[in-house]
Simulated scan of single mutants.
Amino acid sequence: MTAMSAEDFVALINTAKDSKDWRPVFEIIPYFTFLGLRLEETDGKFISVLSEDRKFIGNPTLPALHGGVVGAFLESAALVHLLATQEVTQLPKIINITVEYLRSGKPIETYAEAVITKPGRRVANLRIEAWQKDRNKPIAAAHANFLVS
């Protein structure tokens, strides 16, 4: 993340929440830009979108998404969910993440939704699922813990 005061960061997050335009937030986090990350809000749910890009292919013979990209996408979706749904005063920091790779992901647009399973004053626990064409056939899932204050 580029150098920015905590007050400016919080103001940027609050502006994104009001306008529902998360691009300015994503632009200050270089990895989000690399992933081509987008956030869509539907019926009060936040869905993170990983863009289709050949640079994410890990196994060209299948072809399949690289596991590191899938794991990073799940972590990013959890972080974005925290930013979008919680009152933040600083960027939440990952404590740990456990990723379950359930099936091979094709190099196509991929979606993820995070759910806070236990909100806390200092630590938030989340469950994240990623899928492609069929929500009922997830390609990966994860449990993550973030330091939120």
Score class of each variant (00 low, 15 high):
V69G: 09
E40G: 04
L102G: 13
V115P: 06
E41Y: 08
T15F: 12
A3D: 15
F146Y: 11
A72P: 10
V10E: 00
R121S: 08
A78W: 02
A77C: 04
H143S: 11
P107N: 04
V115C: 07
D43S: 09
D21G: 14
N96A: 01
E41A: 11
N136E: 02
W22Y: 09
V69D: 05
P138R: 06
I29G: 11
G68N: 08
M4F: 11
F56T: 07
A142K: 11
T15W: 13
N14I: 01
S5W: 10
G36H: 07
D21F: 02
S19E: 08
E7H: 13
I97S: 07
P24V: 01
L62N: 14
P60Y: 07
L37M: 10
R122W: 07
Y111I: 00
T61H: 13
E7C: 06
D53W: 01
T117L: 07
A130I: 05
L65V: 04
I95R: 13
L79F: 12
F146P: 05
K133D: 05
A6M: 08
E100V: 06
A16M: 13
A3C: 11
I94W: 00
T117V: 05
A140E: 05
E27W: 00
A84Y: 02
Y111N: 09
H143L: 11
L12G: 04
G71E: 04
T42R: 15
L12R: 13
L39W: 10
T15E: 15
P119K: 15
D134H: 11
I47M: 14
I29V: 15
N14R: 15
S104Q: 12
F32M: 14
E52S: 12
F56E: 01
L79C: 03
L82G: 06
G44W: 00
